[in-house]
Design a protein around this nucleic acid. Structure first.
Lengths: 112, 112
DNA sequence: TAGCTTTGCTATTAAATTAATAGCAATGAA
DNA sequence: TTCATTGCTATTAATTTAATAGCAAAGCTA
């Protein structure tokens, strides 16, 4: 799967607007989940796979390559870790955690 | 496609953690793009389709249904609009716009 | 040094999602 | 009554994801 690079057309988007490239990258399966799980500490391949509820190794490996090429994660002695860029992105995603809890309430209240 | 509901297992996630349900929902093609484009003003189906660079009507329709069921958008006289919940989510996504511009710089600098 | 374990994957196939395209029914204006 | 617009549905093809098996390399351990 082609890496979505800002400035070039990406999946579904000819414009290459950085935000669309980002949405493409983050929209791929487990991309945000990986960033989420790497936040706390470094994890090796199999640890990460477990944290991500047995994501298939093929998908995990593809996603890891993409996220590395996108400067969001890197490998350290201890395993995969967020880069500084990755951490700065994570800090923007983090509020979604709390938001999702309130959102979850609506499903109970509005019984959709 | 099954709507990811917090509290129930979702695509790739057995846990049903709200954040994982949210990642599933937002990770589907054009989901974030639709929220992004509906921010400014109400758009009808074909306008939205154009804004989303000719996303196919099938995908657009599927996504609109899901986002409606997830309380994020609704239909008004003027077309599709964000709900209050949708706007609160958008406010969290909004910073990604600026972030993505800085991120785009890295691709130039680091020539990846 | 011959096994055994762990790790990081690759390969294969099947299932699910997305994309591309045509076109239709309903509404409204001319 | 015709024509244009709108909001889709239907169909098929292409792409992505999931599920599973298993292998090569590295590091113990006996």
């Amino acid at each position: 799967m082609k890496l979505p690079v800002p400035g070039s057309p990406v999946r579904g988007s000819q414009s290459g607007q950085p935000i669309m490239a980002l949405f493409d990258l983050l929209g791929r399966s487990w991309a945000m989940g990986i960033l989420w799980n790497l936040n706390e500490d470094a994890l090796n391949f199999r640890q990460l796979q477990q944290k991500c509820e047995s994501v298939s190794p093929g998908v995990l490996n593809t996603r890891l390559k993409e996220l590395r090429q996108a400067f969001l994660i890197t490998r350290s002695e201890d395993g995969y870790v967020l880069t500084e860029t990755g951490r700065s992105l994570f800090s923007l995603l983090q509020p979604l955690g709390k938001w999702s809890l309130e959102w979850a309430q609506q499903f109970k209240t509005d019984h959709a």
